[in-house]
Design a protein around this nucleic acid. Structure first.
Lengths: 157, 157
DNA sequence: TATTGTTATACTCTATAACTATA
DNA sequence: TATAGTTATAGAGTATAACAATA
């Protein structure tokens, strides 16, 4: 029937929910909200990007994004710069302090939450990644995607 | 090294995010918020459950749950009943109208968002489910889980 | 005309903690 | 004492739409 896929989606959600439950405490300890951490994680290891791009990647709408970025700016974790090419647009990037948060909070979250994968082998990971990559391709086919989907490790809440 | 698993988590998040983007529009059309739909979906096809159980399954804390359930009650979609055995506790279940929403909104969301899986075979699904079930077991091992995790199709946003 | 980001509104969710009532 | 749910508070995210500046 048509709903055969639902079980997989539910499992997907369960996995992510469990992981979030696992790592969420460490994120919260850093004083960042889910959305803020999402932004930090998305900007980490990139030269920065526009609001538009950030919104596309995090599923946060532009109106909301203004507020989220504002709070991060107040905390001194991100900075904005007018785009010279397109003066409507801003370039958002992590400040030095933001990079530091990224580099401190991230590893701690990673270290603690990654313990459950201790016994995974290289092959286990490779197989899992292949499965998920294929799945992503299938699901993403449903909506025309921005081709610039990069590898910024994000949504690690 | 220790962060090898991150790629999988990110893929997991990407998949779910893409699916949410795909199905989210239909959820919103139903007039339900993410959290409300989550509750409806969790209660669907069950005889009902306590706040405690609902909170455990949806990751919504009890303080918040009061508000969410309240709004659903105002909409006439859920009803509460004192538990006779433990008078501190409530039993929450879908009303007839709630069941109807579950039975109407759900299939539409399912139908539209399931289209991308059109070419998946029975074997494809079986393999995917096995991978995800194993992954869930691993991740869940990190925190002692309530043993009553049932099959209420939820988090289908 | 279309797009980027801002502002404004109204609502909803969130974390947290103190509280009531049962157990 | 511990647990189920309520209330209160302060902050944050959300959808939506009207708006400015720029393309």
């Amino acid at each position: 029937m048509g709903e055969r896929f639902l079980k997989s989606i539910r499992l997907l959600a369960d996995c992510l929910q469990s992981y979030e439950r696992l790592s969420g405490q460490y994120v919260r300890q850093s004083g960042l909200t889910h959305a803020q951490f999402d932004i930090i994680a998305t900007l980490g290891n990139t030269p920065g990007m526009s609001y538009k791009e950030l919104g596309d990647k995090t599923l946060i709408t532009k109106g909301t994004l203004t507020g989220v970025i504002e709070r991060l700016e107040q905390k001194g974790l991100v900075e904005r710069q007018r785009n010279d090419c397109d003066k409507r647009s801003f370039f958002v990037r992590l400040t030095a302090e933001g990079e530091q948060v990224f580099c401190n909070v991230f590893p701690q979250v990673v270290k603690e939450s990654g313990k459950v994968f201790a016994h995974y082998s290289e092959d286990d990971f490779a197989a899992l990644e292949k499965t998920l990559t294929d799945l992503k391709t299938v699901i993403t086919a449903g909506h025309t995607e921005c081709p610039s989907t990069r590898d910024s490790t994000k949504e690690i809440i």
